[in-house]
Design a binder for these strands. Structure first.
Lengths: 143, 143
DNA sequence: ATATTAAAAGATAAAAATATCCTCTATTTT
DNA sequence: AAAATAGAGGATATTTTTATCTTTTAATAT
């Protein structure tokens, strides 16, 4: 469904979104420890998220990553698209290059519904939604 | 969503399922041409499908692959499971090892619904369903 | 029986994804 | 201004996936 890189990205973003006001900046080490992901690889992924303006970074002592603005404004689909691209949202399930309404693959219509369900969920689920669940202790980022 | 191998598998199985009674046996070359997949790699995948009893093979002259019994008895989820395993059906969307009702990842419940939708579709869509659509010309296996 | 055909099996190669390491740059603190 | 910190960037390594090639095995036809 998602690549490993994308899973790490989502987990990392959720973790940063769970940070309390005031201490809303976390270093790479802290993040990768919190979500149980390989540090250096996670660094690359966070760089990509920074490039996509989903995350901000500060260098130097006490530097780290944080989310600028409201976490309710960032939705999961943005993270997925930043890391995995839009194949999940637009690509043919069976790999046909020109799969469309006019020239549909054998599962085109059956998949359409699922895709809409999936993208709908990803486009309406904000970081705040999921981070809140972690903060109140009803869902988890590790193990 | 699916690996390339799995897409080739589904396409190949659909193609074999479209063959008319009597000529219901196709060689590797014919199949890979029909679904636009790399021949040797497709051969490996078909072997795997044979091992999983979803497909049967005959060696020698006029040999090839065919489906024994009714194509309405084989559903897409069996093909997916044979090639990609059950991670799509059981694995955590965010990669948590012990994601469960008791210890859910942040998107566990939101994904539950989508997973049920997806697996429901794959478990109820038979090869006959999709092959018929190809045979009457309303869906396609290539390009 | 022999030759031919086609899948099975094994070895190998190429590409992509995942992961690590080292150096560079920006920032902060002293 | 100098030292220390931490992310950015580049190079490299490993693993997995995808793909190909060669040899073997089984079946058929002559």
């Amino acid at each position: 469904m998602f690549s490993k890189a994308c899973k790490y990205a989502i987990n990392a973003m959720i973790y940063v979104a769970t940070l309390p006001e005031g201490q809303e900046r976390a270093g790479l080490k802290e993040i990768s420890k919190a979500v149980n992901s390989p540090e250096a690889f996670t660094g690359k992924i966070l760089q990509e998220l920074v490039k996509h303006d989903l995350l901000h970074s500060v260098k130097g002592p006490n530097g780290g990553f944080h989310i600028q603005g409201d976490t309710s404004k960032i939705v999961l689909s943005e993270i997925v698209e930043a890391i995995d691209g839009d194949m999940l949202f637009t690509g043919c399930a069976l790999g046909l290059e020109k799969c469309s309404e006019d020239h549909p693959c054998p599962v085109h219509h059956k998949f359409q519904a699922i895709r809409e369900h999936l993208t709908g969920m990803l486009m309406t689920t904000s970081l705040k939604d999921v981070a809140d669940r972690v903060n109140i202790g009803i869902s988890f980022l590790k193990y």
